[in-house]
């Protein structure tokens, strides 16, 4: 998110790479010969229809599964943020966020960091609440916070706002942008929400039906924060819809 031009970005060695990766579950081939390269600090969105293999890509990138064929290269720690229920329900918001700062020595440094994060996501008053006492939006904030305080350089977001209503979703997008400005990270955002991708990402990959291939790739250079109604965003949405054959 720093003000690096795309040229500069491309010059750095990639932090994540899929090289000719294929993935099968039993007889079903989900990914076929997929290539992907993500630069350090880049915000990449992957959109595609449900079931096309988006989560599978994240699992491969995060090292949770090994590819059937091909190679995954990752230069740094990665952390997943899930669509929902990624918080441990027996821990308070504070304890859940603390899970992210386990690399810091116990003590005031850790506490300060957590408090800072709680304040930043506006949940200071809810720090001792358990996840079931929080709304869906609050829970996703805590999840984001937990990922953002961690030492992981790569965030793998799997439809992080998918379970939320439109307004909350919109609000949290703004919050994610704000947090990323505070804690810069490489982000892979998986979503079926085209507008969300256009709103947030610097690069958008549109996947087709299974077995997934990259149908088209788009770059958006508009600076953050963007507005949903920003012509660049609207235009990107229009182009993606066209690409997917969904425009009237």
């Amino acid at each position: 998110m720093k003000d690096l031009s795309s040229v500069e970005l491309a010059a750095l060695p990639p932090i994540l790479q899929l090289r000719a990766v294929s993935q099968s579950f039993g007889t079903i081939e989900v990914l076929h010969d997929l290539n992907l390269s993500v630069a350090r600090g880049e915000f990449v969105a992957i959109v595609g229809p449900s079931g096309c293999g988006k989560t599978t890509i994240l699992n491969l990138l995060g090292g949770h599964i090994a590819p059937t064929r091909g190679e995954v290269v990752r230069d740094g720690k990665a952390r997943m943020v899930f669509q929902q229920d990624g918080l441990l329900p027996w821990m308070t918001a504070r304890q859940n966020i603390e899970l992210g700062v386990r690399h810091l020595p116990q003590g005031s440094a850790r506490d300060n960091k957590v408090n800072e994060l709680l304040a930043l996501i506006g949940l200071r008053d809810f720090s001792e609440h358990y996840p079931h006492q929080l709304s869906g939006g609050m829970r996703q904030r805590v999840e984001l916070a937990r990922a953002l305080v961690s030492e992981a350089e790569i965030l793998l977001l799997d439809e992080p706002f998918g379970a939320l209503d439109f307004l909350t979703r919109l609000r949290l997008r703004g919050e994610l942008v704000r947090l990323l400005q505070e804690f810069p990270r490489t982000v892979i955002l998986v979503t079926h929400d085209i507008e969300e991708a256009a709103h947030l990402a610097e690069r958008i990959l549109v996947l087709g039906e299974r077995p997934a291939r990259v149908n088209c790739e788009l770059r958006l250079d508009a600076p953050h924060p963007r507005d949903v109604t920003d012509p660049i965003v609207v235009d990107a949405v229009r182009r993606i819809l066209g690409e997917m054959g969904l425009r009237e």
Partner: peptide, 24 residues
């Protein structure tokens, strides 16, 4: 998913048992 989160946070062994498996 709980074990995923635990692994992301480098929890293992007794700590995994005490902080994740048992509470779950």
């Amino acid at each position: 998913i709980y074990f995923r989160v635990a692994r992301d946070s480098d929890l293992s062994g007794i700590e995994l048992l005490r902080r994740v498996t048992l509470p779950a």
